[in-house]
Computed example of a mutant assay.
Amino acid sequence: MTALPAIDIAPLLAMDDAAAVERTAAAIGAASADYGFFYAEGHGISDALFDRLEAVSHRFFALSEAEKAEIAMAHGGTAWRGWFPLGGELTSGRPDRKEGLYLGEELGEGDPRVAAGWPLHGANLWPTRLPELRPAVEEYLAASVAAAEALMRGMALALGLSADHFANELTRRPTLLFRIFHYPPGGEADDLGVGEHSDYGLLTLLGQDAHGGLEVRAADGSWIAVPPRGHALVVNIGDMFERLTRGRFRSAPHRVIKASGRERLSWPLFYDPDFAASVDPLPVPATTRLLPRWDGADVHAAGGSYGNYLIGKVGKVFPALAGKQLRELP
C-alpha cells in the first residue's frame, strides 16, 4: 500500500536556513506533482491547541438539534456561515453523511468587502451556549493560516518563483474558509462520509482526529488511505492550483469512507485566492501528463474572477440556499 510523503515545513516558517528551505520546497514540489497530497509536520500548531479544538468541537456537536439550529446557515446570509445538519451538504449531488459548521475569516461591517456585499465574506455565527468555541477556532485559524502562508512560500520556490510571489499578488488578501465536520457512526455499510471530489481552490490544510477514513485517488486509479499521523496536517492541491501550474501540481480526487466505525472530526482550512483575482496560469512549462478528471471537467478552461468561479461551485453544495444568499460580483 502506497503511503503519502511526510514533509517537515518548519524551515518555511522560519526562513532562516536557505539550504533547508530549498530542500523543503523541492519535496513539496515533488509531492504536489506526484500525489497532490502530503502530510505537513512542523507546522507550528501546538498539540494543546489541537486537543482544545477537538474537545470544544465535540461539545458543539453534542448540543441539541434546536440549539445548533439557532446558528443554521439560513441565518448566515451572504457570509455563508453556520451549521448544517446530517445529510445537509451535497457532494456531486449526493448527500454526505456528516454535519458541520461553516466558518471563515471574521470580518465586520466596516470591511470594504463586506460593505460591498461580497458573498462568503462577513461575520461568523457562534453558539451562545458554547462561548469557548470562538477563541479556540480563532487561535487555530490564525496558526493554520500561518502554516498555509509558509506552504505557499514553498510552492512558489518549487515553481522557480520568488518565495513571496503569491503573497504579493494572488493571496495578498486570501479567501479563508474554515469548516468543522462531524461524521457520526452508523448508517449503511456503503455510505460515504464524503463522496469522490476534488477541492475547488488553491490549498487545503486538513486537521483530523485519531479516527481515519480519508482516501486519495492515485494516478493509477487506486485509493491510498490517509490515516492520522499524530497532529500532522494533510495538505492537498486544489483545482485552481492545478490550473495555475498548467497541470504540474495535481488536484487529486479524494473521499471519506467509514473506516473506524466511530465518530470522526475534521477541520479543513481552504486557503484560496483573493476573491476578486483572476486565476491565470503562471509562466511555467505545462505538464505533458494531464490525467482525465474524475468528473470530466476541465479546470484549465476556467475564466473570470476566482469569486464568481467559487460561487458557482459552492452553490451546488447547498442549492436551496444558493439562490437566496449568493450572487456573482459585477
Rank of each mutant, 00 (worst) to 15 (best):
A66K: 12
A66G: 13
A66R: 13
K68I: 08
K68C: 05
A72E: 10
A72P: 02
A74S: 10
A74L: 05
H75T: 07
T78N: 10
A79Q: 02
W80N: 03
W80D: 02
W83S: 04
W83H: 13
G88V: 07
E89L: 07
E89D: 09
E89T: 08
E89W: 07
L90V: 08
L90I: 08
T91C: 11
S92F: 06
R94F: 00
P95E: 03
D96V: 01
D96A: 06
R97Q: 01
L101A: 14
L101D: 07
L101K: 14
Y102F: 08
Y102K: 07
Y102G: 05
E105W: 02
E106M: 09
G108K: 00
E109K: 02
G110S: 04
P112K: 03
P112G: 14
V114S: 08
V114A: 09
A115M: 09
W118T: 15
L120D: 06
H121S: 15
H121Q: 15
G122M: 01
A123G: 04
A123R: 14
A123S: 15
L125W: 05
P127K: 12
P127V: 12
T128K: 09
P131S: 10
E132D: 13
E132F: 01
L133C: 06
V137Q: 11
V137Y: 12
E138D: 15
Y140Q: 11
Y140N: 06
A143M: 02
A143F: 03
S144Y: 00
S144K: 01
V145I: 11
A146I: 02
A146F: 00
A146V: 01
A147E: 01
A147D: 02
A148N: 05
E149H: 10
A150F: 02
L151V: 12
L151M: 15
L151W: 04
R153Y: 04
G154D: 11
M155I: 11
A156I: 09
A158V: 03
A158Y: 00
L161R: 13
A163W: 05
A167Q: 13
N168W: 00
E169S: 10
E169N: 09
E169Q: 04
E169D: 14
L170E: 07
L170R: 03
R172W: 00
R173D: 03
P174S: 03
P174A: 07
P174G: 06
T175F: 03
T175V: 01
L176Y: 00
L177Q: 10
L177A: 08
R179I: 00
I180C: 12
F181V: 10
H182N: 11
P185Y: 01
P185N: 05
G186Q: 15
G187L: 15
G187P: 15
A189C: 09
D190S: 12
L192H: 11
L192F: 06
G193A: 11
G193Y: 14
G193H: 15
V194G: 14
E196N: 15
S198K: 03
S198Y: 14
S198R: 13
D199R: 14
D199A: 13
Y200A: 09
Y200R: 08
G201E: 12
L203W: 05
T204Y: 05
T204G: 09
L205E: 01
D209G: 05
D209V: 01
D209I: 00
